[in-house]
């Protein structure tokens, strides 16, 4: 492979790594927001916590 080809592979790996991590952050945040929405509103607190 030419130097240009190797460079493209390397830049592609860096881009995929950064984009992949960003995607994982977005997915994790979305899942947590869904769990938050699934909780009953105005959940009464346990007397032991008040």
């Amino acid at each position: 492979m030419s130097g240009f080809g190797w460079m493209l592979v390397a830049f592609g790996c860096v881009g995929a790594g950064i984009a992949g991590y960003l995607f994982s952050l977005v997915v994790r945040e979305r899942r947590l927001e869904n769990r938050l929405k699934a909780l009953p509103l105005n959940t009464p607190r346990h007397p032991a916590d008040s």
């Binding site: 994790r28 945040e29 927001e33 938050l36 959940t43 032991a48 916590d49």
Partner: peptide
């Protein structure tokens, strides 16, 4: 995200107890 995870865990425990 870490803070949000802590908060969701806490609220779920509260909801379960309640």
């Amino acid at each position: 995200i870490g803070r949000l995870a802590d908060e969701v865990d806490r609220l779920e425990i509260d909801a379960g107890r309640a």
